[in-house]
Design a protein around this nucleic acid. Structure first.
Lengths: 227, 227
DNA sequence: CGAAAGTTTGAGGCACTTCAAAGGGCGTGG
DNA sequence: CCACGCCCTTTGAAGTGCCTCAAACTTTCG
């Protein structure tokens, strides 16, 4: 049984606090707090360990965010497509890296105290909150995938999800390589390839020649694998 | 290459919207929006599919939140200990279940529009934001664990994390069973047990008789496994 | 057209699972 | 206080899904 002692003080991001000290706070308060930025394919957007001073909304392209262990093992926690917000951090330092899977256009937002944001632009504040909750929900679904699903089930779930977000079910043009998929699903590229072949042989999907687009032939069967 | 079409409209939780319709909104606006609730060991707090009308802060005890696949496979996404906030949902329906690992005391908060909360009690609004970000950060770390770590590494990471949160490093009194640990780490109970034995034989930990407390003997070695 | 990179396929190995049984703790009742 | 039974945990043995290593194939791009 837990002691009934005072609950730990809840941490919260320093930059959210009203009046938190920030460098380069010389911009006029009225200036739009956003900047358009573009990145080439495979370009880094930020890196584990960087100072976290802003977050982003994807306008075009696909971004991957990931962590790397000391020995090089990589885990991609999410792909971000147009409309998604990513890069909000708890601490002052990046816990993740991000880079462009394909050419990307982003809107960059400087971190800003929540109270200020809620006052200045309540609708946008809502969207930011919503983005955080959506990221959390997706992370939780991904935890289920990684912890308890087989390789084929992982692929089925992934294909349904990415198709839905990128193009609507039916056909996807995958922006990412097999390596990226493997590092997202906790598999090796060989297992990704074999599982796709397996889904193709079962007539659940079709793999056209250039290997980057995938046609979902039997969506209800894929959903069944998705449980 | 992505089309540069208008980004998807960002979803956000309906209950956050100012003026969102809510049932039973007859309570006076000034009433404290919190209620103390207690649950017995193994009691359910909410279930996948329920209406999500509130969230909780743990005062005492330990809570697990989890998803279950149609065939019964379970994945515990997190354990929540005193000070933690859990149960904030994106949609109107619970995507997770929660129950008490041991006797639990909670504070229950009704969902409330963000703008209202930010005005009424900005400090608490910060804490809620912080709780969401902390949950996200932990989920991301857990994704790395599930996707890329070996069984022994998973145990090392888990023990360091839970000890730190429950009692400070050195010694933990685990509130949860091996089954819970297995379903959290994406393993079977047998593998959990074998990995603990392995850590014990390496003199990294010690397992006293009653099997529920664990002494961390070699924290730096455990951290090395944690990468 | 040729080189390079990405993907698929094959063979063998290993980490973790599955199935099975034995070994404690703990509470109850004698 | 000890004996009994239940449940949780540990240990063992065999199986398997995914990984590793290796090579062939395909697509892309200079």
């Amino acid at each position: 049984m837990q002691t009934i002692s005072a609950p730990h003080v809840m941490q919260f991001p320093a930059w959210m606090a009203r009046g938190a000290a920030r460098q380069s706070d010389t911009r006029p308060a009225s200036a739009p707090n956003e900047a358009r930025r573009s990145f080439a394919k495979e370009a880094g957007i930020f890196t584990q360990g960087d100072q976290a001073q802003s977050y982003y909304r994807v306008m075009a392209g696909t971004v991957r965010t990931y962590r790397v262990l000391s020995d090089g093992r990589r885990q991609i926690d999410a792909f971000h497509v147009p409309g998604d917000i990513f890069g909000i951090e708890m601490g002052e330092v990046r816990s993740m890296s991000a880079d462009a899977v394909e050419p990307v256009t982003l809107l960059q937002y400087r971190n800003q105290p929540l109270a200020e944001l809620a006052t200045d632009d309540p609708e946008f504040a809502q969207q930011v909150m919503g983005a955080m909750l959506q990221a959390l929900e997706r992370a939780q679904a991904h935890i289920m995938l990684l912890g308890r699903k087989s390789a084929v089930e992982k692929l089925a779930t992934f294909l349904l999800g990415i198709a839905d977000r990128l193009s609507g079910l039916g056909c996807v043009d995958l922006p990412m390589s097999r390596i990226d998929i493997a590092d997202h699903l906790g598999l090796t590229i060989e297992t990704v390839s074999r599982s796709l072949t397996q889904l193709e042989r079962a007539r659940y999907i079709e793999l056209p020649a250039h290997r980057r687009s995938i046609i979902l032939k039997n969506i209800s069967a894929l959903r069944r694998l998705d449980s």
